[in-house]
Simulated scan of single mutants.
Amino acid sequence: MNVNKLDLLFFLAQNGDDNAMLELADYYYLKSNKQDLSEEVFQMVKNYYYQLAGKGNDHAMATLGCLYYEGINLPQDFKQAKYWFEQAAEKNNALAINYLGYCHYYGRDLPVDFEKAYSYFAKAAQMGHHNGMYKLGDMYYNGHFVPKDATIAFFWFNQAEQAVDLESPEYPNIAYRIGHCLLLGTGVSKDLLLALSWLHKAEWGCYQLSQNGDAYAGLTLIRVHEDLALLRHQLALSNPYQHADLGTHNPLNNA
C-alpha cells in the first residue's frame, strides 16, 4: 500500500474511524506477510479487530476467529476461534459459517461430525461462498456423510473456482482439486495437458501465499508437487518420440 495512504489510515484509525481501523487491520493481517509482523503491529491489528467486534462488526469477529484458528503470532486456540465464529455466524457471516464447518470436519476442540460439517458447508455454499463449495466437493469426493460421487465433487470444485477471486487464499486449493481430478480422470474425462495447466496455477498460488506467511500453503504445495511428478511421468510415457533417435526425428533436419 502507498505510504501516503497508510499515513492517512493511521491518522484516521487513531482518531476512532471504524472504516480506517478495519482497512488498516485487514491490510496487515490479510494482505501482508502476517508471520513477519512486529509485535507492536500485530497488537494494533488485534486491538482494532477486538474494538470492531465489540461494536458488532461480523467481519472483525470472523477474522478474530481465523486469527485464533491459525495460531499465527499467538497460541492456537480452537475454543476461542469457535467462539468468534459463532458470534459472526449469528450475524450470517459466510466465512464464519464455513469455518464452523471446518471445526466439525476436522474435530477442532470438539468431536468430528461430518453431518454438521456438511450442514455448515452447504449453508456457506448457498450464500455463494467459494470455500463452502469446494469443501462440499471434498465431502462428495471422500464420501463423508454423503455417498462418494466424484462427478458431484468435480461440479462443486468448478462452482468454487467460478466464485473465487484469483488472489484468494483458497484459489490454489481449488485449482489443485480440479487439476487432480483431470489428472486421474475422476469425475471428469482424463486430460493431462489441462491438468498440467490447473496444477501450475495451484503451484504458483501456493508460492504466492507462502510469501504472505500463509500457514497452510505448504501442505497444498506438497500434494501439487506429487501430482506434477505423476503427471510428467504419464506425459513422458505417452510421448512416442521419447526413446527415438533424435538424429532421425529432429525436425530441424527437414528444414
Score class of each variant (00 low, 15 high):
L199A: 09
G54I: 03
N2C: 00
L231C: 07
L228V: 10
A122P: 00
Y27E: 07
S238T: 06
L221P: 03
I72K: 08
K46C: 05
D113I: 07
V224F: 06
L230T: 11
D18N: 15
M21E: 15
D149F: 02
L184Q: 12
L219C: 13
E70F: 12
M139A: 04
D18L: 11
L237Q: 14
Q242P: 00
F154G: 07
Q80N: 09
K148P: 00
S38I: 06
R232T: 04
E167L: 09
Q126K: 10
V45Y: 04
H243L: 15
D77N: 15
P251S: 10
Y83G: 00
S238G: 01
H233M: 04
G65R: 00
E226V: 10
A88I: 10
D245F: 04
Y134I: 03
R232F: 12
E167R: 07
D165R: 06
N131A: 14
H233G: 03
A60L: 11
L37N: 03
E170S: 12
R223Q: 15
A25W: 02
V112T: 14
D113M: 05
A163Q: 11
A122Y: 06
D7R: 10
A244P: 02
Q43T: 13
L22C: 06
A236Y: 02
I97H: 04
A89F: 07
S32V: 02
C103Q: 07
C103L: 08
S197C: 08
D77C: 07
P172D: 05
K91P: 13
A13M: 06
K190E: 15
D77M: 09
N239R: 02
L252C: 03
N57P: 13
P251Y: 06
M61L: 13
L95K: 10
H59D: 15
T248V: 14
Y176C: 01
D36L: 15
A236Q: 09
P251K: 08
K91L: 15
Y140I: 02
